[in-house]
Simulated assay, not measured.
Amino acid sequence: MIKKILFSTLIAICTLSTAFAQTKTKESGKELNDPDNLASQYFSQVMGVAVDATSNLKLYKFIYEWIGTPYSYGGNTKRGIDCSAFTKAIYDKVFNTTIRRNSRDIFSMVDPLSKEDLKEGDLVFFKIKSRSISHVGIYLGDNRFAHASSSRGVVISNLNEPYYSRYFYKGGRVLESFKKEFTVE
């Protein structure tokens, strides 16, 4: 509830600052009353992720709306969701791309990447206490990723946390051939 109030307040501030701005003040080349800049600052502070002018605000808004949703194996609603359903929902709604439903099948759709080559929107895969891929999330930058954790629900975590560092397998970027094959226009 508090999260929704804060988000509504942000939207109201963005709208008011745009509507009532008489002059535009510039700081470091960015307009202070720019709604996208305000949203970037908000998500940077609330989510602990460096969100800048090149970031996909739609991605951060989507994740913010799901933060705290409980984990439910096989779930795909706000009452409960698992990691692959959360990742699939992001790709559907934010990137207008349909990906497969489980983490192993999703991995078959990507060009594997090392941790150093990850960019915002790439996928991160884990082999948690398993020989095969068992977990997936969305990379946000600064070693942070959003995912549906089995113990904490939808959260933002750090790849450098000992737990995730231990089980990290690879990153991945969805191949263009799959984007065309699965995307509905």
Results as ranks from 00 to 15, higher is better:
140 L>D: 04
139 Y>S: 13
163 Y>M: 09
65 E>M: 12
113 L>E: 02
80 G>R: 08
49 V>M: 13
91 Y>H: 11
166 R>L: 11
91 Y>C: 03
45 Q>M: 15
166 R>D: 13
140 L>W: 04
105 D>F: 01
97 T>D: 02
145 F>R: 11
52 D>Y: 00
37 N>G: 04
79 R>C: 03
128 I>H: 07
144 R>V: 00
39 A>P: 05
42 Y>D: 13
62 F>P: 07
100 R>Q: 14
109 M>E: 10
106 I>A: 07
57 L>Q: 05
48 G>Q: 02
155 V>A: 15
113 L>C: 01
115 K>T: 02
56 N>Y: 01
130 S>T: 04
117 D>L: 11
99 I>F: 00
77 T>D: 09
125 F>P: 06
171 G>A: 05
158 N>R: 04
127 K>F: 05
96 N>Q: 14
144 R>L: 01
163 Y>G: 07
129 K>E: 15
72 S>T: 01
155 V>P: 00
90 I>Q: 01
115 K>A: 14
161 E>G: 11
55 S>E: 06
136 V>M: 10
70 P>N: 14
108 S>L: 14
164 Y>T: 08
85 A>D: 04
51 V>N: 09
95 F>I: 02
85 A>F: 06
96 N>P: 02
47 M>C: 13
150 S>W: 01
106 I>S: 06
42 Y>P: 09
40 S>P: 00
115 K>I: 06
38 L>V: 03
113 L>T: 02
174 V>L: 08
37 N>V: 06
142 D>H: 09
155 V>G: 12
173 R>G: 04
44 S>M: 09
139 Y>H: 10
59 L>T: 05
79 R>Q: 12
136 V>H: 10
41 Q>L: 09
